[in-house]
Amino acid sequence: MELGIANSGIIFDIKKFAIHDGPGIRTTIFFKGCPLICWWCHNPESQNFKPENFINPKNEDKHSENIEIIGKKVSVSDVFKEIEKEIIFYDQSGGGVSFSGGEPLSQPEFLLSLLKLCKNNEIHTVLDTSGYATEEILKQIQDYVDLFLYDLKFIDSTKHEKYTGVSNQQILKNLIWLSENGSKIIIRIPIIPGINDDNDELNKMRDFISGLNNIQGIDLLPFHKIGKNKYIKLNLLYKMENFNEPSSELMEKIKLKFEDTNVPVKIGG
């Protein structure tokens, strides 16, 4: 099925001067809605496809001051206007636009419309994705993405399903397809002690990456509990209370392991 052109989509933030979402100074567009529900997600407000309320739990009277609406429908042209405003910074720093979320591939027509506008205007594009999408969608957007930030959480499909809610078969297939079809990719691996930091899982991921082409780098993202406050505001259960953040020693050890792939490895994004 051919993707059409969308006039609008739903996002929850446009972040300017983003300096950790790809090369240079970037504008990051945060799409709202994600088919995955990762236990450790630090942006839980990105999961639901509809606008929702953040409620500040400190005041119980639910006074309007304490409610913040997360997510809004925006037009492609309005988003692109914001993107265009920052061109001088992209040019200066070798930056551009990053599409993140949520899962941008879950609003494929909105994403494609923005990607095409960026390409027409010679703006560098990054797609930060879980890779969870049909091959059909992926193939249609591939040409317009300069760099993929591609999440890899497990090779083990059962664990993937347990901790993210979906199987990883299509995700791995898509990653292989991209790597074989000339896309530049940085693999991003969240390191979550007790969930995916066992040697077996790490070795499998390392070996899998070794078999791929066009991998520009591996970013190891240490799990953190920064998102906890947001779960409270959304009145959602935070499942990670009893998990620990990885020590820097552990991160260094894992970094060494992934350096076997001969791809540059970085701790942090």
Partner: peptide, 17 residues
């Protein structure tokens, strides 16, 4: 260094303008 690097770019962009 990333922070310093990007701040330097921010300054250069301001000065370009």
């Amino acid at each position: 260094d990333t922070g310093i690097e990007k701040l330097a770019h921010l300054i250069r962009a301001y000065f370009k303008m």
